[in-house]
Design a protein around this nucleic acid. Structure first.
Length: 664
DNA sequence: CATCTTCTAG
């Protein structure tokens, strides 16, 4: 770099310097930074950048670089930056490191514009600052900028190195990744572990397992990190078996690899495997669980309703000094609400500082799930008016669900309309689902059906089940059959829809219709999704299917079932066999109801827990109306509170009635 | 003078 360049550079610098300082008030008292106190008098620092150089001693450049790295705030960086500028050291050809360190310093404090401004004022940027700038842009999601920097680098005839590729790959789609891949090959850098891991990651993100696998197989050395990247790739594809196989083959594991595997199970429908792996992690003892581990594990607890395990993890978090950041708190709120303990959920919520929209969403959804509609809506208002946070589409799922569960038709419709009008959020199928269930529950089935017909999005099976369920509930067989006729002509694969269709025909006394649906199911090979209920006792989750005799204490359970059956009959219970799908006689139908999975779970709970203690049951499908009636009676006879989570919501049974008000 | 893998709400 010639003298002329240096000169130009410094002139340019002064301008940039002022621009930089505009963003952060320089009038802030500089005394807050003791770092430079010995060598740099504050009063001089607080004056303008035009102070002439050399009035006080500056630490040597090597020391300055260390000071930049140690800076704990942007203020400190700005002071050092100012000092360097005043001594004309920033673009000094002998100390390019200062520019680089400042760039990284600003970037690490989230001052992306400051960091990139430093790059843009650099004359003849070298590979280091180029790579640093590309990395900064990539990490912060400025992918277009990262690419234009990369292109500028190529045209400057400096060859990118492994560091550059590792940075630019973070901005790559599969398309651009392939292009970069060719550059990597051309420059012979594919053996580098960082580059190949980056490539695996790009292919993983694009769902291209084959290319990722190829990359991985050709690596000369499979590092811990690249194996973890490959596991991530399998997991993203939903192939947990392949992921686990590789995980088991690894000779060393760190907490990240454990986390990827645990979360992989939790997010792909294997929550109990996630919990088992968490146990293994603890037993293994080589890696220490962190925030991410507990978030994944709590999510697994939420899914199977493992309240005891969830509580245990809460204690574990406290005892192991795991930081209770907003994500962990939200995972706890979600776990407690989904495991039936709204009290504990709201306790965690109250104690969460700096709640973000996700935390609010989780709590609102929690109240909605449990049928506390007013509380959910109050929370929504509090969020908007007190914190000023912007609701998201998910916020509206919570509030609309609250309205649906509370039968608040007008509020719900108004909320639905305000979504687009006030917040510019386009309703998704889930929002329509809430609206339809709201109207359905209120018996406005024609209106619901009209909305479905006029929707711009195509109705899904959730929506149809919702209307059909409401038709059944309100005995509206006119609309019900109309929808049924329409749906039978469609190519539906969702088993739940067929069950409901058959229920509707059965309730309407149309046995030809029932036969038609049953034949259709046979033709298409559609099997009813099995109902599975679980109950957690002493930290162990017990699983039951209808008619199940797998359980160790099966004999006692069936004895208890018979005993309960007699007692509820003496309380005037008459079985409602309308919903039984099989072609059976009345007695057999009654028997098939008696062994529904939720009843097995309740019976087991009655055997294993102290009289009077509450029971918590979880079911993967919606609770059937007969079981709902029976559970109400059991709560009355035994004096127990029974909390039941079904696919849709929570039911709190107390003394013969249910919090859902018999609409669900 | 440096680069890679994990994160909550429906």
């Amino acid at each position: 770099m010639g003298l002329f360049h240096l000169h130009m550079g410094l002139n340019f610098l002064k301008v940039t310097f002022i621009i930089l300082f505009k963003e952060i008030s320089i009038a802030e008292p500089m005394a807050s930074s003791p770092l430079l106190a010995t060598s740099l008098p504050h009063n001089q620092l607080t004056t303008t950048a035009t102070v002439t150089a050399g009035r006080y001693r500056l630490p040597p450049p090597e020391k300055l670089a260390v000071l930049i790295e140690k800076s704990k705030s942007v203020d400190e960086l700005l002071q050092i930056h100012a000092a360097i500028l005043r001594h004309n050291l920033l673009l000094h050809p002998r100390y390019p490191v200062l520019n680089l360190k400042l760039h990284r310093g600003y970037a690490s404090h989230g001052k992306i514009r400051h960091a990139l401004a430093l790059f843009h004022q650099t004359i003849d940027p070298d590979l280091f600052i180029f790579t640093a700038a590309i990395n900064t842009a990539s990490v912060n999601g400025l992918h277009d900028q990262a690419f234009s920097l990369y292109i500028r680098l190529l045209s400057s005839e400096i060859a990118p190195n492994e560091f550059t590729f590792s940075s630019i790959l973070k901005s790559c789609s599969t398309e651009s990744g392939k292009a970069i891949h060719t550059h990597v090959l051309k420059l012979g850098l594919w053996m580098d572990p960082y580059v190949s891991t980056g490539l695996i990651d790009v292919y993983a993100k694009g769902g291209d397992v084959t290319s990722a696998q190829k990359m991985f197989d050709r690596m000369p050395e499979r590092s811990l990190v690249s194996s973890t990247a490959m596991i991530t790739c399998y997991v993203k594809q939903g192939n947990v078996e392949a992921a686990r196989a590789l995980f088991d083959r690894m000779c060393e594991r760190d907490i990240v690899s454990w986390n990827v595997m645990i979360d992989g199970y939790a997010q792909h429908g294997f929550p109990s495997d996630a919990l088992m792996l968490f146990q293994k992690l603890l037993a293994d003892g080589t890696s220490k669980p962190d925030e991410i581990t507990v978030v994944a594990t709590l999510s697994a607890c939420s899914q199977i309703g493992a309240l005891e395990t969830g509580r245990w993890i809460h204690v574990f978090i406290k005892n192991n000094r795991i930081r209770l950041n907003v994500k962990v708190s939200t995972a706890l709120i979600d776990m407690y609400s989904k495991c039936g303990s709204l009290e504990e959920a709201s306790l965690v919520f109250k104690e969460t500082p700096r709640k973000d929209i996700v935390a609010w969403n989780a709590m609102i959804a929690g109240y909605a799930m449990h049928g506390y509609s007013q509380e959910a809506l109050k929370l929504f208002d509090e969020m908007r008016f007190v914190t000023g946070l912007q609701p998201t589409d998910i916020t509206f799922i919570g509030t609309l669900q609250a309205c649906a569960h509370g039968g608040l038709v007008n509020e719900g419709v108004r909320l639905f309309e305000s979504m687009g009008q006030e917040y510019g959020i386009k309703p998704k199928i889930e929002h329509y689902g809430c609206l339809i269930s709201l109207l359905g529950r209120a018996g406005q089935l024609k209106r619901a059906y009209e909305i479905i017909k006029n929707m711009k999005i195509e109705a899904d099976s959730v929506l149809w089940s919702s209307v059909l369920g409401s038709c059944k509930l309100h005995g509206d067989f006119v609309v019900g059959k109309e929808i049924a006729e329409y749906l039978i002509g469609q190519n539906i694969t969702n088993s739940g829809i067929y069950v409901l269709l058959s229920n509707i025909y059965a309730s309407a006394g149309d046995y030809e219709g029932v036969a038609k649906v049953r034949n259709l199911m046979k033709e298409k090979g559609i099997v009813k999704e099995p109902g599975i209920s679980t109950i957690e006792i002493d930290n162990k989750v017990h699983e039951f299917r209808a008619g199940d005799r797998e359980h160790m204490e099966s004999k006692e359970i069936y004895t208890m079932l018979r005993k309960m059956s007699e007692r509820i009959k003496s309380h005037g219970y008459v079985p409602n066999t309308n919903t039984v799908l099989q072609d059976l006689g009345e007695i057999e139908k009654e028997q098939s109801l008696q062994v529904h999975s939720e009843r097995l779970a309740i019976a087991y709970g009655l055997i294993c827990t102290k009289p009077g203690s509450p029971l918590k049951i979880f079911k993967n499908l919606r609770v059937c109306s007969d079981c709902h009636t029976v559970t109400k009676l059991i709560s009355k006879i035994t004096g127990r509170k029974i909390v039941m989570r079904d696919r849709n919501r929570f039911h709190h049974f107390t003394d013969g009635s249910c919090s859902c008000g018999d609409f669900w």
